[in-house]
Amino acid sequence: MPPARSWRTYPQGYMLEAARCKKCGKTFFPPRLVCNKCQGREFERFNMQRTGKVVTHTVIRTPSDEFSGEAPFAVGVIEMDDGPRLTSQIVDVSFDEVKIGMPVKLEFRRLSSEGDAGIINYGHKAVPART
């Protein structure tokens, strides 16, 4: 990925910046310019809490080349406690432990790197939430 492509979304990738429609209250991750529920165009931005739960999940066993060294890995749709849903790997977990409804928290991880010489892309991955 060219550096600019990840750099321009660091607020979302690093800080989980989301937006709440001022008209109808719907939350979006990443932030958008137009609300897809009410067409509102004014938003309040906020950084999401890093907690949520699994809505659905799978285990990727045949990945694209970019992820070939990491397979198999679990991926899920996560519903954040702040509302928006996002896709994330679920790591540091045994696959049979991943269930719909499982509470998770997001940890800062490497998402990918452009070979051995390119930039490293950072973001978040889900891990089981324990206390």
Partner: peptide, 11 residues
């Protein structure tokens, strides 16, 4: 793990 490094641990 493959996705952990000095930066991620520091964060």
């Amino acid at each position: 793990a493959l996705d952990e490094d000095t930066i991620t641990l520091s964060v």
